[in-house]
Each structure stands twice: as structure tokens, then as C-alpha cells.
């Protein structure tokens, strides 16, 4: 199935900011994060189709996963 991944801020460094990837059924958000070499501890916000997502959620065809690091400076 096809998944769109949108990365933000530092997660774009060394990676494409939008990626359309083919994955097996039963792939979870966590699997995608691992595949991209992102440390789960660095993820501040995980959205699936614009809604609050979970790491263990099994994704569906055409899901859009948005992944954000924490930005807190002032």
C-alpha cells in the first residue's frame, strides 16, 4: 500500500520533506519512523491524516503521516 510521509524542521535534514512510499500491509507508524532512521524519542508530534496519531497504529492505503520534532526556543 502507498503511504505519504511529510517531515518537518530538522527531520528534513538529509531526507526528502515529502516521501511517497510503498509498504506492506500491517505497517505501523513506528515501522515508518524506524525506516526513516528517526529516533522515536525525538518525535514531538505524530499526525496521521492531520489527527493525533499513535506509534503502534497500523496504517492504511493513502494515509498521510506528518512527523515533527519539538521546537521550543525563543
Amino acid at each position: 500500500m502507498r503511504i505519504t510521509v511529510k517531515l518537518f524542521a530538522t527531520f528534513r535534514e538529509g531526507r526528502d520533506k515529502i516521501q511517497i512510499i510503498d509498504v506492506n500491509d500491517k505497517t505501523t507508524s513506528q515501522n515508518i519512523i524506524d525506516m526513516l532512521g528517526i529516533d522515536k524519542a525525538e518525535v514531538a508530534i505524530l499526525l496521521i491524516n492531520g489527527r493525533d496519531g499513535e506509534f503502534n497504529r497500523v496504517l492504511s492505503q493513502d494515509d498521510v503521516l506528518s512527523i515533527f520534532p519539538p521546537v521550543g526556543g525563543g
Binding site: 524542521a9 530538522t10 514531538a44 508530534i45 493525533d52 515533527f68 520534532p69 519539538p70 521546537v71 521550543g72 526556543g73
Partner: peptide, 10 residues
């Protein structure tokens, strides 16, 4: 958005 987590920022 922060999931209630006080993470260290980038």
C-alpha cells in the same frame, strides 16, 4: 501538539 511532553527542543 506537544502531547503534554516537555521534550527538549531542537
Amino acid at each position: 501538539f506537544y502531547g503534554g511532553k516537555a521534550l527538549e527542543g531542537a
